[in-house]
Design a protein around this nucleic acid. Structure first.
Lengths: 154, 154
DNA sequence: CTTTACTCGGCATATTCATGCATTATGACC
DNA sequence: GGTCATAATGCATGAATATGCCGAGTAAAG
């Protein structure tokens, strides 16, 4: 009948969830129905999956669907992993400091990506030619981060 | 019996979801059980809510629980709303441009917060003394954004 | 026109998550 | 100790989401 189709519907959904407080998929379907688009919750579920929308708890039992910049963060992790495999030679830790040793000249490039992780536990990074100093808030956090970075190398 | 209790358990959950690919709350409960913490899915549900963890679709039908920097984004929206109510006098749109008129001298302050929204549909902002030009990718996006901004003023 | 391959979406249902209610633990106060 | 108030949690179940299966639609190839 009408033919706006999937792509159009998904654009509407994205706009919708940013504009309104929507807490269930059924609710999304209702809104679309007002716009003349009749689909079931099952379809919305598939859309939500493809759009990688997220049901964010407000902390008080309320929920709201949102689009997610988490997707971007995922990519940062991928990027980090790739560069780690290529350029990182060694990882070490002393107290709350993480020391990353890289191929010559690659320290600042890697440090840049580490910064982009935007982790709370990282106070800052300092890069030389082949060494990065990652300053964490605590030794425990540095240790956890070391584990995490090591797992990237596997 | 043991007494680490809620707070400790929630810390473990936060670490857990960042370290492992966890897709259901039952799975979280299983992992905790290995650590000697026996709680039911109901409790995990409440924890997830308090921690504001999010079940992020991978796009392929897989899911992963993650902590969310979206909480920060929420705050940005709150901040924006507050400043809008105080300082914004008018909103208008021409094609893909959004024009925000503010109290004298407040344009760049407001523009700064708009930038922090980090919205894909916003190409950039340009602020004068009492006027902000928000450049969107399309007219439709500008219109949607206009609606959204207007709702902040209510 | 027929066949084949593929995408989309509904229906029914399975899976997962949220929550009202009752119970038990914890702590403050007497 | 006892009593009260509050927080935490389990159980059972309701609410919400995900998905297997199938049929309809479309397009390309023959």
């Amino acid at each position: 009948m009408n033919m706006p189709s999937k792509e159009y519907r998904q654009r509407l959904i994205e706009e919708l969830v940013e504009r309104e407080f929507i807490s269930t998929q059924a609710e999304i379907a209702e809104h679309l129905a007002l716009r003349g688009i009749n689909v079931t919750q099952a379809t919305i579920s598939r859309d939500v999956n493809e759009l990688r929308l997220v049901r964010l708890p407000a902390g008080n039992g309320q929920h709201r669907y949102r689009s997610t910049p988490l997707a971007a963060q995922e990519d940062v992790v991928g990027e980090l992993s790739q560069r780690f495999k290529l350029f990182v030679r060694d990882l070490d830790r002393g107290e709350n400091l993480l020391v990353v040793t890289t191929d010559e000249g690659h320290a600042s490039g890697i440090a840049y990506v580490i910064d982009k992780l935007d982790r709370d536990e990282i106070v800052g990074t300092l890069a030389g030619q082949n060494t990065i100093l990652v300053v964490c808030r605590s030794g425990a956090q540095a240790e956890a981060l070391l584990d995490e970075f090591e797992s990237l190398l596997e």
